[in-house]
Amino acid sequence: MSELRFNELRGEQVVYAVHRQERTFLPSHEHCPLCPTRPGGSPTEIPRVAFEIAVFENLFPAFEAPHGAAEVIVYTDSHEGSLATLAPQRAEALMWVWRHRYAELGAREDVHYVLIFENRGVKVGVTLHHPHGQVYAYPFLPPVPELELQADRRLGGCAPCALLRRELEDGRRLVYQSQQIAAYVPHAARWAYEVHVVVREHRASLLDCEAAELRSLAGALQALVRGYDALFDAPFPYVMVVHQAPVAADGMLGGHVHVEFYPPLRAAGKLKYLAGSEQGAGTFIADTVPEESAAALRGAIALAA
């Protein structure tokens, strides 16, 4: 069971989940716990010989009932591949799975915020290579969504809507557009190739999205990840986070569904580290300019299309 301690100096919760030290660490393909259970083989987390998408409660949870939840979302029964290489119909189905987990976990009394995310690549600490993401259902409102609510108040309305309008008017940092979706490197991106993928219409969460928006969101995410992989001609590490409205009564204002990517690479083979200024002062020092990153990424997305 995890323990929450409140860090007074930072004004934030810290989660102690010491049992996670024992979690499976970079197993071989033969011992992958996210693969299907093959006849005669060792049992895995999914007791089927084949499946499309699977969700299960994490064996090493950071949160668990009655204080939240931690789940694993397995995108495919194939050990190889990525979000980008899923068939379009599978990627679209994944959006519905995200929506279902948001609805179900968000309806629980102990859950205040539902975070769907994917860590890709050992450079961001992934411990299983099989294509998958995770869901954390927090028993409190974490700092980042709280900051987004503050941004709504500061801008006098939905902040993602206002920022999207600015990016569409400027145009220099846009990397992808469809009828329902726009993606851009933010004006004040913290990471060299940070991208926000935003539903154009104001939608608080995936529950509010039309089917066509979910289909278009899946297409946008796949196009972006293909572009990332083309940028340095190698699998591109990233942290991908789905931002949606808080679900608890204390956070029922605000929220606009969008997906943020935080890639740690600042150039091919060069990592951006969170060092003195980032950790000690909370101020990012960037080595790149968002407009130039966006131009490079636009080219890579076009190349990979």
Partner: peptide, 14 residues
């Protein structure tokens, strides 16, 4: 579904 150790497992298919 419910795994042998009691954890929930949900399978999604088109």
């Amino acid at each position: 579904l419910r795994k042998a150790d009691g954890r929930a497992l949900i399978l999604y298919r088109r």
